[in-house]
Simulated scan of single mutants.
Amino acid sequence: MHAFVFPGQGSQKVGMGTDLAAASSAARAVFEEVDDALGMKLSAIMADGPEDQLTLTENAQPAIMANAIATLRVLESEFGVKLADHASCVAGHSLGEYTALCAVGAFDLATTARLLKLRGSAMQAAVPVGVGAMAALLGADIEKATALAEAAADGEVCEVANDNDPGQVVISGHKGAIERAASMVKDHGIKRGILLPVSAPFHCSLMQPAADRMAEALSENAPGAMSVPLFANVTAAKVTDPAEEQALLVQQVTGRVRWRESVAAMHADGVNSFVELGGKVLSPMIKKIAGEAQTTSLISMEDLEGFAKDIGG
């Protein structure tokens, strides 16, 4: 059984999607539709940069989605491998959950692009630049990370944002608290704390203003039926009801990305093959969580061709 999974922020890079667009009209059509939906040449920033423009949260989020959906559309149209025929479930890391919903037909492409641009700008605007921070804790499990976050908070926000895999947890909150946590890692039996180059403290309670804006946007653009069930970030459980998923997408802005538990739950549900579209950031995490499961990263035309042959599209 296959799960199709979709990467989150940090997987963007200048040049993303360029080879696919050169090789396939299906990919070009995705990038053009996203450009039209946003009223900007996002595809040009993806192809040529500048990098600081692509890294802006409000550009990075729709760009990562567009690249993954272009990859999927090429797989479906050029190689005849349809997600609905081969995936038993889908999931995405943070913004990737929106990509997954687009992939299973709950949102159309233009709506997904607009929601993610809004999500990016709302998350950026929720906290003034310099007030918040995030740090990756390496060699930390969820228990150690939680204890560290509580010890470092000292009246400020310091929360677990991403439980990525058994040895990597990300914390988020006020800059002072996150810097304190990074300096205290050794006391908590954690190897390293690395401040992340992000412009806002995602997935913590400081993001509440962004959650409110997404609640409003999603009430006007509610997800529809899904062709395949989704494992949601905030519950690490299977969702098929669009109304339930709408509420979970709002909670996701301030809530923890329970990626480790999501992968474990999919694996327990019978998934033995994880297919990452448009990136290769999730596959190493998945290997650490569900070691015996197969992982495949689909980025290039060669990747897609090879996968189509293997799966017998």
Rank of each mutant, 00 (worst) to 15 (best):
S183F: 13
A122S: 15
E143S: 06
L218C: 08
A110K: 14
D187I: 08
P128C: 06
A153V: 13
L109F: 05
Q208S: 10
G139S: 06
G120M: 11
V104H: 03
D212E: 15
H174R: 14
F202H: 08
A182M: 11
I142G: 03
Q168N: 09
A217Q: 03
E143R: 06
G132R: 03
A225M: 09
S121F: 00
L109T: 05
G132C: 11
E216D: 15
S199T: 12
A136C: 05
T111I: 07
P166M: 04
C158W: 07
E97N: 13
E179G: 12
M226Y: 11
A181K: 00
I171R: 02
L118D: 00
V157H: 12
E179Y: 13
V185G: 05
A147Q: 06
A210D: 14
G130R: 07
L218T: 10
A145Q: 05
L138D: 01
N164R: 03
D187S: 14
L138C: 03
A147W: 01
M184A: 14
M134Y: 09
A211D: 13
G193N: 01
G105L: 12
A126K: 06
A222G: 11
L218V: 13
D187M: 07
I171S: 00
V131W: 01
D187H: 11
A113I: 05
F107G: 06
A133Q: 05
T99Y: 05
A126M: 10
P223I: 06
E156Q: 14
A106P: 11
A133D: 03
L118V: 04
I190L: 13
G96N: 08
A100F: 08
H203P: 02
I190Q: 08
T112F: 00
K175I: 09
A122V: 02
V198Q: 07
I190N: 04
G130I: 09
L95P: 02
E220D: 09
E143K: 11
V127L: 08
A126L: 10
K175L: 14
H174A: 15
G139P: 05
E220R: 06
L137R: 09
S199C: 10
V185H: 04
V198G: 06
G224Y: 13
L116D: 01
D187E: 15
S94M: 07
C204S: 14
V127H: 03
G173M: 03
V157Q: 10
R213P: 00
Q208L: 11
V129M: 03
I194P: 01
M214E: 05
V104M: 06
D212I: 07
A140D: 02
I178T: 04
P209T: 02
K186H: 02
G139N: 05
S205L: 14
A133F: 05
K175H: 13
A113C: 12
A113R: 04
A182T: 14
L95A: 03
E216V: 09
L118I: 07
E143T: 12
D141T: 08
R213Y: 01
G193H: 02
V170N: 08
G167Y: 02
E179L: 15
A222W: 00
D154C: 12
F107W: 08
G132W: 04
